[in-house]
């Protein structure tokens, strides 16, 4: 009441205030517009970066794609080699590495989220696992070399799989724990109220609810290990010839790319770009596919 009165009594002042408010409002909305524009710009930069990477790979790699890439094994310069052994070796090692690492990571993530809240052991496991997320992968390769390769007297595909599995574990642990922690208490309580034991609640309710996030974590792990060179160099070594034996040295795309990209010979350099193109688009395709499948399942 008094406010209306006082504003009435000083009408010119109110108009002045209104003008100030208008000016302020203009400034406020201008600030908002500038920030909005900058945000759109940031997003465009992000998209442009992705486009630039993909375009580089297509421009340099696409011309080298032919049937021979998929039907011929790696050969010396000038002999029209392909990447068959490297592609197959990479698939085998990535699949087995992820297949070993995922269950372990899943169990550990579950332990951290469901059983070890606040316990000293849990904190220790979490810390070590997180520190290893940023470990240079060559050190993990070196460790597996000392653990598996040197004692058994030779490089082998399985040693490569184990090295990749060790890289997979901390990634899956992190996403599993994060995703399980996000599940609402109400959902757990509902399951418990129905008389389900805790383990059933976790497996049937929590895992299902956290499926999306966990799959994203596994996909990130796939992306990470599919392009790893350093841990394979001293574990599965690489193989110039066709070999599916896990007890013998095994070829892989990243190691082949690494060696070919730095060579003097045009056909090897071309194959390196083809390999880079295949890895990147393969990993991207798996990611997109999994997202589509997950969304369709809902």
């Amino acid at each position: 009441m008094s406010a209306t009165l006082s504003s009435h009594s000083t009408l010119p002042g109110a108009i002045k205030n209104l003008n100030v408010a208008k000016a302020l409002g203009r400034r406020r909305s201008r600030a908002s517009t500038v920030v909005k524009a900058l945000c759109v710009l940031a997003t465009l930069i992000g998209l442009a970066l992705l486009a630039s990477i993909l375009l580089t790979l297509i421009v340099r790699g696409f011309g080298g794609i032919g049937l021979g890439v998929f039907t011929e094994v790696t050969k010396p310069p000038g002999s029209n080699g392909g990447l068959l052994n490297a592609i197959v070796g990479s698939l085998i090692q990535t699949v087995i590495g992820v297949a070993i690492g995922t269950p372990v990571g899943l169990l550990v993530g579950t332990y951290l989220a469901e059983y070890a809240r606040g316990s000293t052991l849990g904190n220790a496991v979490r810390f070590v696992s997180d520190v290893l997320l940023s470990a240079p992968s060559i050190l993990i390769g070196l460790f597996i070399y000392q653990l598996v390769v040197a004692p058994f007297g030779g490089f082998s595909g399985i040693a490569g799989c184990i090295a990749l599995a060790v890289i997979v574990i901390p990634i899956v642990v992190r996403t599993t724990e994060d995703m399980l922690s996000l599940i609402p208490v109400a959902m757990r309580e509902a399951a418990m109220a129905l008389g389900a034991p805790k383990w059933k609640m976790i497996v049937q309710v929590c895992y299902r609810a956290a499926k999306d996030g966990i799959v994203t974590g596994v996909l990130l792990a796939v992306a990470r290990v599919a392009g790893e060179t350093a841990p394979l160099l001293f574990t599965s070594l690489g193989n110039l010839n066709w070999s599916l034996s896990l007890t013998k040295p095994m070829a892989s795309l990243p190691v082949t790319i690494y060696q070919y990209a730095g060579s003097a010979f045009d056909d090897w350099v071309q194959l390196a770009w083809v390999g880079a193109l295949l890895i990147t688009f393969g990993v991207l395709a798996i990611n997109i596919l999994a997202r589509v499948v997950l969304r369709g399942g809902k």
Binding site: L47, L50, I53, L219, A223, I257, A276, T280, L284
Partner: peptide, 11 residues
């Protein structure tokens, strides 16, 4: 944007 995280580091 998330796909930027899926590009292997050697690339």
């Amino acid at each position: 944007i998330e796909l930027l995280a899926a590009v292997p580091s050697i690339i």
